[in-house]
Structure formats: structure tokens, C-alpha cells
């Protein structure tokens, strides 16, 4: 669509839309620096909630568990998801292909309560002790489907003649993958890894079902506090998380832009 001249209707809908998206987050950030414990009354600038947060051992412990789960599950999900994407795009015919693609797309729209419950029942049935590893397995499973979707869209635009040239020149399939295919789809794999990492950091429902005593994740900790009402310490924690995510998104989009420019030049 071509841009038209300045139009009040469009300007208003943009302002209202983005206002709606950003105002609640902005208010949350502002009130994390509020000295007063009351969330609606401004009591002056203070960083006391940040100090309290870092001194709260239960929070730090939960943050550590969450980070470990996210790092490991995102890495497994990136590997399995890339393999699944190669299968989706390259392997046109094999027994169970319909089932395979169904199992890749279904978790994307599956209600989390069902995924959580079904995985918990699996872990109980095979007698696996619930804890850090069961959360990691659960997160790997649903995140690999997101990675598969991201990577497969990159593989679709992939110039197959590059691989064929390498194979003609005597490179083995494995070598071709690591020297030709992987460098080209790497940005998509990194994007998929970041998506898997964020989904894992964010997940409350699946983690609640699959965690055991002693392995509380940050969202579970936040949830148990938030149920009791608004809490300035949670505001401080939210501000830190939002800032980290914002920095991450800006950096990746700048990197993506540079990559696109580099490809444009070639």
C-alpha cells in the first residue's frame, strides 16, 4: 500500500493503538521507583524496591532456576527445531509426514493448560521426579515447534543450487550442511533460539504443572505474589525484565538490519 498524505484518522488510530500498548507498561515502570508502598500514590523517587529485590534470596534462587531452564531448553529447542525444519522443507515423502507436520503446528495453538497437564501425566507415568529437568524437557518440546516455524521460513527462500554445487564438488552431506547451509540459515536459528529463550523465561502454566518441590521458576514466584495484589517489588522486577528484553530486541533488529543490508549489497 502506498502512503497517502497526512491523515487524521490514521494518526489517531496509531496514537491510540500504541498508547494502549505502552501506557500500562510505562505506568508499571514509573511506579517501580515509587517510595510509597501504595501503588496509586506517588511518594517520591526511590530505588528501595530494587534493593529489596536483590536481597530477597527466594527471588534470586527462582531467577537462577529460570535462567538455567531457559538456556538449556532454548539450546535443545534450537537443535531439534532446526532438524524438524529441515524435515518439513526438504523431506517431501516419508511415512507419517502428515503426523509429523501436525505435531509441529499443533503445539503453537495448544492451550497451555493441556500441554502442562499432559506432560505432567507423562512424567508421573514414567516415574520421572519432577523438578529442573522436567521443566526443561517440557519447554524444549513446545519451543522446538516455534524454532521449526522460524527456521523453515528461512529454508524456503534458500537457494538449493549452493548445496548442489557443494555436493557436486565432492563434499559430504554433513560437510555441506555445516559449511554451506548452516551459515546461511544461522540468523533464523539465532532468532528461533531467542524466541525459545523468551518463551521459556515467560512460561507460568507449563512450569507450574511440570515443576516439583524446590524448583520454583521466576514466573511462578511472581504469580504467587501477584495473586495477593500489587506489589512494588514485582514492579521493580518487571522493570528489569522489560529493560533487558527491550535491549535484546533492539540489538537483534539492528543486527538483522545490518545482515539485510549486507545481503542487499551482494
Amino acid at each position: 500500500m502506498n502512503p497517502t498524505r497526512f491523515n487524521w484518522f490514521n494518526a489517531t488510530s496509531l496514537a491510540l493503538g500504541f498508547g494502549f500498548l505502552y501506557l500500562p507498561i510505562l505506568i508499571l515502570i514509573i511506579f517501580s521507583f515509587n517510595d510509597s508502598k501504595l501503588v496509586t500514590v506517588w511518594g517520591g523517587f526511590s530505588t528501595r524496591w530494587y534493593v529489596a529485590l536483590f536481597q530477597d534470596e527466594a527471588f534470586m534462587e527462582a531467577a537462577w532456576v529460570t535462567l538455567r531452564v531457559a538456556l538449556v531448553s532454548a539450546t535443545f529447542a534450537a537443535i531439534l527445531g532446526t532438524m524438524a525444519a529441515m524435515v518439513l522443507i526438504r523431506a517431501k515423502r516419508f511415512p507419517g509426514r502428515m503426523l509429523f507436520s501436525g505435531m509441529i503446528y499443533s503445539p503453537l495453538v495448544m492451550p497451555e493448560v493441556i500441554t502442562g497437564l499432559s506432560l505432567l501425566l507423562l512424567f508421573v507415568a514414567i516415574g520421572l521426579d519432577r523438578g529442573y529437568w522436567t521443566i526443561t524437557l517440557a519447554h524444549t518440546t513446545f519451543a522446538m515447534c516455534y524454532v521449526a516455524v522460524v527456521v523453515s521460513s528461512r529454508l524456503l527462500s534458500f537457494d538449493m543450487s549452493l548445496e548442489e554445487a557443494a555436493l557436486d564438488l565432492g563434499s559430504t552431506r554433513l560437510n555441506t550442511f555445516f559449511q554451506v547451509t548452516l551459515p546461511i540459515i544461522l540468523p533464523a536459528i539465532i532468532a528461533g533460539w531467542l524466541l525459545a529463550f523468551t518463551l521459556s523465561l515467560d512460561d507460568l502454566v507449563i512450569a507450574s504443572f511440570t515443576s516439583g518441590p524446590g524448583s520454583t521458576t521466576l514466573p511462578m514466584k511472581i504469580y504467587s505474589q501477584v495473586r495477593l495484589g500489587v506489589n512494588p517489588q514485582i514492579n521493580a522486577l518487571s522493570t528489569i525484565l522489560i529493560t533487558l528484553v527491550a535491549i535484546g530486541v533492539v540489538i537483534t533488529s539492528l543486527l538483522g538490519k545490518r545482515q539485510a543490508e549486507k545481503e542487499g549489497k551482494q
Binding site: 507498561i25 523465561l201 501477584v226
Partner: peptide, 12 residues
């Protein structure tokens, strides 16, 4: 950004 946090931001 965290889904949970965005929902929470509306409580206040």
C-alpha cells in the same frame, strides 16, 4: 515482554 507482567500491569 512477559505475558504475566503485562497482565499484572492492569491490576494497578
Amino acid at each position: 515482554t512477559s505475558f504475566l507482567i503485562r497482565v499484572y500491569s492492569w491490576i494497578g
